[in-house]
Design a protein around this nucleic acid. Structure first.
Length: 340
DNA sequence: GTTCCACTGGAAGACTAGGTTT
DNA sequence: AAACCTAGTCTTCCAGTGGAAC
């Protein structure tokens, strides 16, 4: 059934990108100065999840590097590297400049100094999930250095600028914008077809089933691929020769929630306890929430810390906060909910 | 309209973990 | 071994906000 599991992973970047020619061309044009050794203006890529933002960025940068030897690049996932230190560290890592600073007691300044001294070929830095950075300092740091060209990826541009001061905001205002829309059913179906062709045995899945998966994924390619992967695993387990309608139906919920569950796994035990309390109550006010939290765990953190947790989980789309003052309530985001 | 106060979130500093230097 | 770094986490303190009660 499954011939090449790599192809069924969401992070996989195919050799040919479908349905995103315009966006690839646009980004290539923005980054074109880099091929002449000149700095390129920042590009801001926005759009809902699972529409190929990361894929297009990585693909385009990869193409650029294939055509021009004198271009460096580094991809940084700001979700995992959300602090200034970690983000800058990852950039240096890509340049191979971290050999002797595998130590924690290296100050920010040292990292910045190394970036400043960088005299290699122009470097394209892709900051994925850039809205997850805890401070916009990183954007400021890198934008100030002409060797580095920024590609910023975020769901919404507003989130990206939320943490930025006016100075940075006005600097980024002139950035090139590339907006992504959700895939249509036909587009999603043909994306799945390509993955099935490379990743599954021949005739393992029919176009009708792929259409059903595409329909269930509501324009989100990550969810669609996750469902396909889940379906293929189920078929393999039951030694079915093909992916049937029944298998698809069974695979949809698991495929949908896979993305959500992965973020839940990143929570600490205390954060998890807070999340569970909110999940148990359909809707909960802050004081009740904190009282229950204190009862639920040993050695509870302060309410201020719990507020930080809540803010973080709202950022991560795990919780929704409604109301601004005394009317504030929290509730969980349902895994199957359509992301905005 | 005024007051109350639950709630938010910024700022500053203490504490911890984990590394380096002497 | 002890002294000394730093980033990251958590706490303490508090000003500001805006529904709710009066």
């Amino acid at each position: 059934m499954i011939e090449d599991a790599r192809v069924l992973r969401a992070e996989f970047v195919p050799h040919e990108l479908e349905h995103r020619d315009g966006e690839v061309t646009h980004l290539s044009q923005v980054l074109e100065p880099v091929t002449r050794g000149e700095p390129a203006g920042p590009a801001i890529i926005t759009g809902p999840s699972g529409v190929g933002k990361t894929c297009v960025a990585r693909y385009t940068v990869e193409q650029l590097r294939e055509q021009h030897l004198d271009v460096a690049s580094q991809y940084v996932n700001c979700w995992q590297n959300y602090s200034r230190f970690r983000a800058l560290y990852r950039v240096l890592e890509g340049l191979g400049k971290t050999v002797d600073i595998h130590r924690q007691s290296t100050p920010h300044d040292e990292l910045l100094e190394r970036l400043r001294q960088y005299d290699g070929p122009p470097c394209v830095v892709v900051l994925d999930e850039a809205d997850q950075l805890e401070s916009a300092d990183v954007l400021y740091d890198l934008h100030a250095l002409s060797s580095f060209s920024l590609v910023l990826i975020a769901n919404r541009e507003a989130d990206l600028f939320a943490g930025a001061d006016d100075r940075l905001r006005s600097r980024l205002r002139g950035s090139e914008r590339i907006g992504f829309d959700r895939y249509g059913i036909d587009q999603l179906t043909s994306i799945l077809q390509a993955r099935a062709r490379w990743g599954l045995t021949e005739d393992a899945v029919a176009t009708d089933q792929l259409r059903d998966i595409a329909d269930a994924a509501a324009g989100d390619a990550r969810v669609a691929i996750s469902i396909l992967r889940n379906a293929a695993r189920r078929a393999q387990r039951t030694t079915a020769a093909t992916i049937t309608d029944e298998i698809v139906t069974a695979a949809v919920p698991a495929g949908r929630s896979a993305v959500h569950r992965r973020t839940l796994d990143t929570l600490t035990p205390h954060q998890r306890a807070v999340y569970e309390i909110v999940a148990d109550a359909r809707r909960i006010d802050p004081s009740t929430l904190y009282r229950r939290y204190r009862e639920a765990v040993d050695d509870p953190k302060t309410d201020r810390t719990v507020r930080n947790y809540l803010g973080k989980m709202v950022q991560y789309d795990l919780l929704v906060a409604e109301g601004t003052s005394r009317d504030r309530t929290y509730r969980v985001v349902e895994p199957a909910a359509d992301e905005g």
